[in-house]
Amino acid sequence: MKFFKEFINKLPEIAGVEPEKLQCTVEGGELELSGKDFGNCKEIGKIKYIGNFKIENFAGDADILFALVIAWIENNDEHRNYLSLSDPKFYISNITESYIEINLSINFEESLFVVEDADGSIFWMNKYWSMNDLNVDIAEELIGLECKSDFYSHS
């Protein structure tokens, strides 16, 4: 649950939320089986969940907090639109002259990638695997590749 952990760690930094006034939970967790082969790793599956973040006694500007949250999500979860995840939801309660309580709910979806590793702790498909990030090898040079096309021929 990479996004959930990163958001918890960044919220105090980006929005000045005091860590002791932040309560975080996960609900609606779902595991999706995949097994997709990405060449140098496999997507064993996906996790889908809702991260709930409760900020107590918030004395700052809620509009600035929401703008910072939106910016963090757009900067860190670039696949949200592709995955059709719903926009974050919030509600505000316990309003006083000085403080409010803010509840944020954010849907997350993350792929779980593994690489074959004899010392790994995950036994799957009769092999041992370790968790890993997706590594995409980008070709920098093509050797021995011949391209032929009649598309642009003018006969």
Rank of each mutant, 00 (worst) to 15 (best):
M1F: 13
K5Y: 01
F7C: 01
I8D: 01
I8F: 04
N9D: 13
N9Y: 02
K10Y: 01
E13T: 14
G16C: 04
P19A: 05
E20K: 09
E20H: 06
C24E: 06
T25M: 09
T25S: 15
T25V: 08
V26T: 10
V26E: 10
G29N: 08
G29W: 06
E30I: 13
E30K: 15
S34I: 13
D37M: 03
F38P: 00
N40V: 05
K42S: 08
K42Q: 10
G45H: 07
K46C: 14
K46W: 13
K48H: 09
K54R: 10
I55M: 01
I55Y: 01
E56Q: 07
N57W: 00
G60W: 00
A62N: 03
A62M: 06
L65E: 01
L65T: 02
L65K: 02
L65A: 01
I70E: 10
I70R: 05
I73V: 13
I73G: 09
E78S: 12
N81F: 11
N81K: 13
N81S: 15
Y82P: 00
L83D: 09
S86F: 11
S86I: 11
D87Q: 11
P88C: 11
P88R: 11
K89D: 04
I92T: 05
S93M: 03
S98N: 12
I100M: 11
E101R: 07
E101Y: 04
L104G: 04
S105D: 08
I106V: 15
N107I: 13
N107H: 13
F108D: 03
F108T: 03
E109Q: 14
V114F: 08
V115T: 12
A118V: 01
A118L: 01
S121F: 07
I122C: 07
I122E: 07
F123R: 14
M125L: 13
K127Y: 10
K127F: 09
Y128R: 07
Y128C: 07
W129P: 03
W129I: 08
S130W: 03
S130N: 06
D133Y: 03
D133I: 08
D133N: 10
V136R: 06
D137F: 05
E140G: 12
E140C: 03
I143C: 05
L145G: 11
C147T: 12
S149G: 11
S155Q: 09
S155C: 00
